[in-house]
Structures are given as structure tokens and as C-alpha cells.
């Protein structure tokens, strides 16, 4: 931990009122990303991964209460509830990519105009066109072909690259990529991820890759955090987590990944993300856990360092062994 983190989220807690109950949808979420690192954030739909990253840049929906936590980026620290402050990071080094790139691009502007509009925020107007052409090139797009087209006239992969060009136009040092490839076919997915990795190297760009697909994370990330029902269940360096996955949920996720070299029967994870009241202090995975025991409902297990990374499960308590 000698290298200071570029981006650090600490103890983020998000609550909302649903069905008359106050529910904690993200609890004690922390995340630390170093310069130029690709970091994976993994979890099922509803685990709170997108919401916490959106909250970290001040873009969480207004109906969500951010009750605790802070976020620092490049030495500037804001309370997680300070949406205005966090949003100021967006024009100073943090950018985002969305799953649905076509929907993320404005339907009313040509792709060229969208990139230039972002550039106009920090460059004199006369240079925007030139810089946009360069960004199209960097993103593997032909400016002459695409700049005059509207988002509905281009393919999903092209749209994601235009979105990339928009994001790069802000000169980011951190890119939060929220399942950027989910809407794309497998070949385009690989291309885009390879392209992102190259950007990381060339531009010292750090990426938080939000994914539900563990194999993608395994291939491109150096570290990962696994979220389940708004809680971190396991996190650490990629090699360590994959060498020795500890939490039953992590094991379940890994068992569900197909492997061409060592074919095995895929085991689907039973059940779905904790849908009950989230203000109750208990393990939120136990209802679908093969190792569940009465103690699981006795409180939220602590996140403990084990086997070179951290895990939240009573199987690994001091007194459990």
C-alpha cells in the first residue's frame, strides 16, 4: 500500500425506502484503485455494484439516500453525500462508460458533434474538430465515415467506441466502465476490452470494470471486489482470489464459469440476491448457501484477512477452525 490510491471509496452506505421499509442497498462499500490499474467489481444484478459507482461520482438517483462514506480522487476528498462535489470530478479526470452505448449517446446530435461538444468544455473551439478526428482515430473509428451519422445509424460496437471517444475527450485518469460490453457480441467484446487495456498502458488510465461475468474480470483485472446484496463478500488481488476462493458465493461464481480446457458440469447458483429487509443484521447469502448454519443469522460477519485477501463469512472466523 505504498503507492497512494488514485481513487478511494470508503465505507459507502446507500439507503432507500421501499415498501414502507428503509432498506440498506449498499453497506460499507470500499474500493481502492491505483493509477493505471484495471480493477474488477463483480456481482449479480441488484448487488449494488452500479449504484455504488454511480454514487461515487454524484450521479446516484435522487431517491437514494447516501448515509455514510467518502470518496477521494486524486487527492480531493468529498463526503459521499456531496453530489455536487463528486460531480465536479467528472470534468477533472473521472469518466464513465455505460452498458447501453446507443442509449447513452444523445439521439439528437451526430457522433462528431457529441465528441466535439465534450471537447469544447476544455479546448478552444478552433481545435475541437482536429482533436475529435484524433480521438476517433484513437478509438479505431473513421471520422470521415461516422462523424456525420447519428447514433441510430451506427452499430452497437461503433456506438461504444464513440462513447469511448466522448469519455476520452475529458482526459480521464479513471474510467468507470459499467458492463461496457454486455450489449455487444463476443468478438466485439474482446476487441473493446483489448482496446481498453491498451489505453490503460498508453495513457496511464485506471479502469473500474463493473461486470457480472467473472471470466472477463479474470482475464483483464489485477484485483477484484465481489459484491453480494450490497455487501463486499470477498476482495483482493486477482491471483489470490482465484487461487483460493473462500466465500461460498465466490466459489459458486467460479463454478459457474465454463472452461474449455477443463470441462466440468456447470453449477448454477441457487436462489437470487437477498430480497428481504436489508436492515436486518445477518449474512445476506445464507439463504442460498450450502454451508449455512444457525450462526449465519446472528449478525453481519466481519471482513477478515485470509489467504492473502479478505472474505466476509463465519466459516473463516478465528474460532471457526
Amino acid at each position: 500500500m505504498s503507492d497512494p490510491a488514485l481513487f478511494e471509496m470508503r465505507d459507502l452506505t446507500i439507503e432507500t425506502v421501499r415498501d414502507g421499509h428503509r432498506r440498506r442497498i449498499v453497506e460499507g462499500m470500499s474500493l481502492s484503485v491505483r493509477h493505471g490499474e484495471i480493477y474488477g467489481l463483480v456481482g449479480e444484478s441488484g448487488s449494488g455494484k452500479s449504484i455504488s459507482m454511480m454514487a461515487s461520482v454524484g450521479l446516484a438517483a435522487a431517491s437514494l439516500d447516501i448515509t455514510a462514506g467518502d470518496v477521494s480522487f486524486a487527492g480531493r476528498r468529498f463526503a459521499a453525500s456531496d453530489r455536487r462535489g463528486l460531480r465536479s470530478n467528472l470534468s477533472h479526470g473521472v469518466s464513465l462508460l455505460f452498458q447501453n452505448a446507443k442509449g447513452a449517446l444523445s439521439p439528437f446530435l451526430t457522433t462528431g458533434a457529441q465528441v466535439e461538444r465534450v471537447l469544447a468544455g476544455r479546448l478552444p473551439k478552433s481545435t475541437c474538430r482536429r482533436e475529435a478526428i484524433e480521438l476517433f482515430r484513437v478509438c479505431g473509428l473513421n471520422h470521415a465515415d461516422l462523424a456525420d451519422k447519428y447514433p441510430h445509424q451506427i452499430s452497437g460496437g461503433q456506438a461504444q467506441r464513440v462513447a469511448m471517444a466522448c469519455a476520452l475527450a475529458t482526459e480521464p485518469r479513471l474510467l468507470i466502465a459499467d458492463e461496457p460490453t454486455t450489449a455487444l457480441d463476443v468478438t466485439t467484446e474482446r476487441e473493446l476490452l483489448r482496446f481498453l487495456t491498451r489505453l490503460c498502458r498508453e495513457r496511464d488510465l485506471a479502469i473500474v470494470l463493473i461486470a457480472h461475468n467473472l471470466s472477463l474480470v479474470a482475464e483483464y483485472c489485477s484485483g477484484l471486489t465481489i459484491l453480494h446484496a450490497g455487501q463486499i463478500v470477498e476482495r483482493g488481488p486477482l491471483a489470490s482470489v482465484f487461487a483460493e476462493p473462500l466465500h461460498p458465493y465466490t466459489r459458486g461464481l467460479i463454478a459457474a464459469v465454463p472452461d474449455v480446457d477443463a470441462p466440468h458440469e456447470l453449477e448454477p447458483l441457487a436462489g437470487s440476491v437477498w430480497g428481504g429487509r436489508s436492515d436486518i443484521e445477518r449474512c445476506r447469502f445464507s439463504h442460498r448457501c450450502p454451508f449455512a448454519q444457525p450462526d449465519c443469522e446472528a449478525g453481519v460477519p466481519a471482513l477478515l484477512p485470509r489467504a492473502g485477501h479478505e472474505v466476509r463469512c463465519i466459516l473463516y472466523r478465528e474460532d471457526a477452525t
Binding site: 450521479l59 467528472l90 469518466s95 455505460f98 447513452a104 465534450v118 462513447a163 475529458t170
Partner: peptide
């Protein structure tokens, strides 16, 4: 999404 993305781009 395009509104959120616009905000995310610091517009």
C-alpha cells in the same frame, strides 16, 4: 441514459 451520460461527461 443519454442525460446521465451527458452529466458523466462533465457537460
Amino acid at each position: 441514459d443519454y442525460v446521465t451520460f451527458g452529466r458523466a461527461l462533465g457537460l
